[in-house]
Write a protein that binds this DNA or RNA. Sequence first.
DNA 1: TGCTGTAGTTACCAAAAAGTTCCTATGGAG
DNA 2: CTCCATAGGAACTTTTTGGTAACTACAGCA
Lengths: 125, 125
Amino acid sequence: MTKTYNIGVEATMEVIGGKWKSIILCHLRHDTMRTGELRRAIPQITQKMLTQQLRELESDGIVCRHVYNQVPPKVEYSLSERGESLNLILNKLCKWGEQQIDDRRANGEEITLLHRDDVKLQSTK
Amino acid sequence: MTKTYNIGVEATMEVIGGKWKSIILCHLRHDTMRTGELRRAIPQITQKMLTQQLRELESDGIVCRHVYNQVPPKVEYSLSERGESLNLILNKLCKWGEQQIDDRRANGEEITLLHRDDVKLQSTK
DNA sequence: TGCTGTAGTTACCAAAAAGTTCCTATGGAG
DNA sequence: CTCCATAGGAACTTTTTGGTAACTACAGCA
């Protein structure tokens, strides 16, 4: 009945794993975003997956959902404090991937990165 | 035909995502390990998944596979140079998860972490 | 009146990931 | 001779994850 993890990384991947969550979180690093903005920022995601993943992130305490009571609906998402604590990790995950893509292209692979991240790595302190 | 990523983190998660890969990699941070050692270190993994994930990590250039030509067989796995470049990220993924587990337990959840990571975070330089 | 944009739900289906079971080969221990 | 440990493979099933299409509500606009 007690939830058991063997190693910390399991708990982390439970939160940021899956096809979409880390991507959504990377976008939310910069701004608070509306549902439609997120959908346009992640063109391949469907409305269903976007909502579903955001709901899970919300119930894990990673993102905040702010509903404006108006029609047509307006809902904004942003990183919670707990979500912000992932910023450094998200930055590094982006950078590492960019580096691999560069390496692979230098190696002759046909591979493209559409949006390079311009976030400066914060110091680890 | 050209492989396209929208954001760096996609490429990273392609490599370390899934239920087992990040766990395997965390264990290999410390030592070169034999197949059986890994299997014992990750009790819930099956032989099949272990082999499969290690093969994928190998073909992504993250781990090295060293086969000793002897009977009974002996095979060792270790992080490649590219794999080592994930060390800092893996450490942070572990630490973040541990922190969350602590928070959740402090919050009354029944939750256990069997193996706390004792790796010191390296400086980012 | 009918169309648009918004955020979301639902039922259903497909694909990917993971799990189960049984199989291989062989030197050495007893 | 039999059994063990080792690393892995093959066939198959189950579970999880992701995708499709059709639907809601309502203000604003022409």
